[in-house]
């Protein structure tokens, strides 16, 4: 968890994290379009490395997890495991229409209902697929969110309380009939 910036070392860590976020990409059942657009971000034209953003293979090195696509039933437990391996504070970006609500795949039999049922999502990017500049924008948005969270001492401040009387108990997100 991000600790309120008391000591010098904590401030240094928060500063370094915001200046050079490491990203890991996880294809949870996408059609590849989002993935190739993320790779396009690394290329000389968009070149995210000039902002200090590095794409890493291992989730254990990553600050931000980009989930491309809807989550298939087979990928759900794997995605959860990848997310669990990331060090705190961890952030999740859900890419594209599929990541937000399923897109064209909404309601198919081998799909989870949403990415948010598997891992908590912090930033959604619109588009099918989002353009590379939109992806960069999402990462920058996520960095601002990180800074705000660090100032508030964690993610709790922006988590909405469930409306009184709302029945959220025992809701299963596995299959939409």
């Amino acid at each position: 968890m991000a600790v309120p910036d008391t000591g010098m070392s904590r401030r240094l860590v928060n500063w370094a994290r915001a200046k050079s976020p490491w990203i890991t990409v996880y294809n949870s059942g996408a059609c590849n379009a989002c993935d190739i657009e993320i790779i396009a971000c690394l290329m000389p034209r968009f070149d995210v490395e000039r902002f200090g953003i590095l794409v890493k293979g291992s989730p254990r090195h990553a600050d931000i997890l980009i989930v491309t696509g809807h989550v298939t039933l087979k990928q759900a437990s794997r995605l959860r495991r990848v997310w669990e391996q990331m060090p705190e504070p961890k952030y999740v970006i859900a890419m594209g229409a599929c990541g937000a609500a399923g897109g064209v795949f909404h309601g198919l039999y081998h799909m989870m209902a949403c990415v948010d049922c598997v891992v908590p999502v912090d930033v959604y990017v619109a588009g099918c697929p989002p353009r590379p500049d939109e992806i960069i924008n999402a990462v920058v948005t996520c960095l601002n969110l990180m800074a705000e969270d660090a100032a508030h001492g964690g993610k709790e401040w922006r988590r909405k309380k469930p409306a009184t009387g709302a029945d959220t108990e025992g809701k299963s997100c596995t299959v939409i009939p």
Partner: peptide, 11 residues
């Protein structure tokens, strides 16, 4: 390889 099976043929 079947991590991406979505069920498009049914849809």
């Amino acid at each position: 390889l079947s991590y991406n099976h979505r069920g498009i043929e049914k849809a």
